[in-house]
Write a protein that binds this DNA or RNA. Structure first.
Length: 394
DNA sequence: TCTGGGGTCCTAGGACCC
DNA sequence: TCTGGGGTCCTAGGACCC
């Protein structure tokens, strides 16, 4: 592969920054963005909160213990998605090759933009300035010969960092870098490698490939490459990549439930969430996956079923998920329920052939519009709400 | 006051078809 | 007599990312 210049951009404390920008009273203060009410954890916290020891994943009470004046803000996903889309629009002013890795991280292949904007560093400064001016948000940028190293680089200075790894410095930087710093090596892999006396990227890169392959199979080669900072994976713009591959929604209940009617009501809500999002994305899918976590937190199961046809209507999703649920005997009260739709087909808008299908589609679209405007589940299929149905029907 | 929610990718094993 | 073997689709589960 020819020499490339890849940039990785990571929004600093993204959700918290967006909230602080939207509400000036929150600026400069320790804030934590949380998922909602009930049993939730901290999704993101501002740097002021992090300085006091607040971390992502903490329960509310843990956050309060670490930082008594912590301000909790319930997150607004739509706001983050919109901001993220606009920021990615800025990136596209510098190269068409932009790959969104998550809502707050993207890779840019700027190899062919260097001659226009004089240097990678210059592009980084331009982008930083625009994001700061337009959104009041700082970001950390890493520039390197590939995605793996660019991401590593953006992690090296936070917040508001700019780190450049040039090819000559790769081996020196990796020599003492802990393997866990590499994107793709998580807790489990770290433990396995540690047991082989491998702790740093330098050690991983020098490890005998056969030894890694014996232990990890076909990913052995990939691990050795990672240790050496080799990564040939291309930056893939969203449009080329074929879009989302699954649409899911899961939620922890405010309290554990075992009443079947209550479980069904919740399943219907989830189906509506998944369905409306699938329809907004203009996708339908034929695999429905139901996930249940029990009250004890540790035991859970997932079951999936694949249909002959593609669906994205809430009640089709609901009926399928309910069908799965009815094949199992619940062992404990339920803590969390989740539904996801996969095996997706991205479709162009198309009107169904038959009158009754058309009616159903129009009714669904009207419902989506109202729910978009007034909040989830303002309107739903009345006939599907358990309890309103005729006895013995379900 | 225990412990969220959105995803992606990979593997193993079975069914089925040619 | 022997009992092949590739491809594809499916389910289940795990690891990883933010």
């Amino acid at each position: 592969m020819t020499d490339r210049t890849v940039m990785h951009i990571d929004m600093n404390a993204f959700f918290a920054s967006v909230e602080q920008q939207a509400n000036p009273e929150l600026r400069g203060k320790p804030i934590a963005v949380v998922g909602g009410h009930g049993r939730t954890v901290i999704t993101t916290s501002s740097y002021e909160a992090r300085a006091k020891g607040v971390k992502t994943g903490m329960a509310i009470w843990e956050g309060k213990r670490a930082c008594p004046d912590l301000i909790f803000v319930v997150g607004h996903n739509k706001k983050y998605t919109h901001t993220s889309a606009k920021i990615n629009g800025i990136f596209r002013d510098y190269t068409p090759e932009v790959e969104a890795f998550s809502i707050d991280e993207s890779w840019l292949d700027i190899t062919h933009s260097l001659s226009i904007f004089s240097s990678a560093e210059n592009i980084a400064h331009l982008i930083k300035a625009r994001i700061r001016r337009q959104f009041g948000i700082t970001c950390s940028i890493g520039i390197a010969p590939n995605k793996l190293l660019a991401k590593l680089a953006s992690d090296m200075q936070k917040p508001d960092g700019l780190t450049i790894i040039v090819p000559e410095n790769v081996s020196r930087i990796l020599e003492r870098m802990p393997i866990k710093a590499l994107c793709g090596i998580g807790k489990k892999m770290e433990r396995h490698l540690n047991m082989m006396s491998i702790y740093t990227c330098g050690e991983l890169g020098r490890c005998d490939e056969a030894r890694l392959t014996r232990k990890f199979g076909i990913i052995g080669k990939r691990l050795k490459d990672m240790g050496q900072g080799i990564d040939n994976s291309p930056v893939i713009p969203f449009a080329d990549e074929g879009g989302v591959k699954s649409v899911g929604h899961s939620s922890t209940l405010e309290r554990d439930i075992d009443d079947p009617a209550e479980i069904q009501r919740f399943l219907l809500q989830l189906s509506e969430m998944v369905g409306s999002r699938a329809r907004r994305y203009n996708v339908s899918g034929k695999t429905i996956h139901l996930y249940v976590r029990y009250a004890d937190f540790f035991s859970s199961w997932g079951k999936q079923t694949t249909l002959k046809n593609y669906i994205n209507l809430s009640d089709d999703i609901y009926r399928t998920a309910l069908g799965i649920l009815n094949t199992v005997e619940l062992e404990q009260p339920v803590r969390l329920l989740g539904i996801s739709l996969s095996n997706l087909k991205h479709q162009a808008e198309q009107l169904p052939l038959f009158e009754d299908e058309r009616k159903k589609l129009f009714a669904t679209q009207a419902m989506d519009t109202i729910n978009d405007r007034f909040g989830k589940m303002s309107v739903t299929f009345g006939s599907l709400i358990p309890g309103k149905e005729k006895q013995g029907h379900m």
